[in-house]
Amino acid sequence: MEFWQDTKQPIDAFLKMFEKCMVDPELSAGLKKVNQVILFDYTQDGPDCSFWIDTRGGKLTAGAGKPSDKPDLIMSLSADDAHRSWSNKLNPVMAITRGKIKVKGSATGLLKLAPKLKRVAELYNEVLQESGQADKILK
């Protein structure tokens, strides 16, 4: 991996980012509209490298690993490309076209999330800054 020392590091960062998203007024409202369970699958970098979010029923929860319920959408990519993606430095359409991101399931949630990536990236950069990983912030 280019950006990460181990597979725990990215998951910790991404979960902290989602904690911020859940309390951000704009993003929490947007996430609730997604109304799906989404698995972000980075297991190509290690068996434990994944996390999920559950945005159903007006509640927002997230956790490491795999969700107990069947996900509506699974996005599979590398942890490095996930870093680029959450930094809003990866064109998701192009990444999908070129096979860097594999998507399985309903795409409704993906389309609801995509317009919010700019704001998500701001929060992600805050997480990197606060956790002493400012060197990972992509310009």
Partner: peptide, 14 residues
């Protein structure tokens, strides 16, 4: 998948 689910206006919001 996108077009089948939500039609050609699927990404109007985006």
């Amino acid at each position: 998948v996108v077009l089948g689910e939500n039609g050609t206006a699927a990404n109007l919001e985006g």
